[in-house]
Design a protein around this nucleic acid. Structure first.
Lengths: 145, 145
DNA sequence: CTGTATCCTTAGGGATACTG
DNA sequence: CAGTATCCCTAAGGATACAG
């Protein structure tokens, strides 16, 4: 979609056109919840994305202004922009929804509870945690996926 | 996806597999925000969905337990189930995100403001409004898309 | 009006080999 | 490790004609 052939000015439609594909939100999840920062990190995610697909996705996310690359060569690291960070509420609601409607959901109940009952504090904790994700690759922290 | 070849137990992934395609959330939007209830209503939406695609989507949404069909023949009407109604918070956050990051967003500012500042009341208003959507087809109410 | 039935096209995605 | 480069393939989506 070439940015000018939008289907409509509907905000839902815009959101879908920006990150409504198979992989974007999974990469953002890795970025926002699991502290993953490198190409290899994303590649090793449970769902198994192909290298070319991942590369394409990272490029698209960067063009959309959701992520930013820093460093170069083997030191390249990806991080969320403010715009990408703003996806947090959407992702949280998706987690809450799945926790409620999917028996197999892997979301920690305590975490899920906080989404509705302790929203503000949870959000700032997460933002802090994300900002501090600068250790060596594959840092797991006590993230929840 | 045949319900058993899930990519993972990640809640984000589950959500995407359930309604992460091009059309599902747009149909749910019509259902939850604009009071549309009939095949023709959805068909006339701004984005222009094809009849076969719409039919397939409605079937999938029904299988996923997000919508329910009532009546028969020309009197057929679709409505959200509780599970579908629960998508409301996700859609609201998507609206808020687009309002913030898309200059062309058509979301009414007053509505957007309420998403963060008057969430509870907004939600129950919407739920009421949705429950009451039983007039003749193409009822527009004072919805926002 | 509410869909089915076809046909066709294409973007998105998978597998794999390879490179600096 | 961080990607490119290919090749291939299929599910998803468009267009349109038709049916109860």
């Amino acid at each position: 979609m070439k940015r000018q052939d939008r289907r409509s000015d509907c905000p839902i439609s815009f959101a879908l056109e920006t990150f409504g594909d198979t992989w974007s939100l999974l990469v953002m999840r890795d970025l926002l919840f699991t502290g993953k920062r490198t190409f290899g990190d994303f590649l090793r995610s449970e769902e198994g994305i192909a290298t070319n697909v991942l590369a394409a996705r990272l490029r698209a996310l960067e063009e959309a202004g959701l992520i930013r690359a820093e460093g170069e060569g083997r030191n390249l690291r990806y991080g969320p922009t403010a715009k990408g960070l703003d996806l947090l509420p959407i992702l949280l609601e998706m987690i809450a929804w799945s926790a409620r409607h999917d028996a197999r959901s892997a979301a920690p109940p305590a975490f899920v509870a906080r989404i509705s009952k302790d929203r503000a504090a949870l959000m700032s904790e997460l933002r802090e945690q994300i900002a501090g994700a600068h250790g060596p690759p594959a840092k797991r922290s006590k993230s929840k996926k």
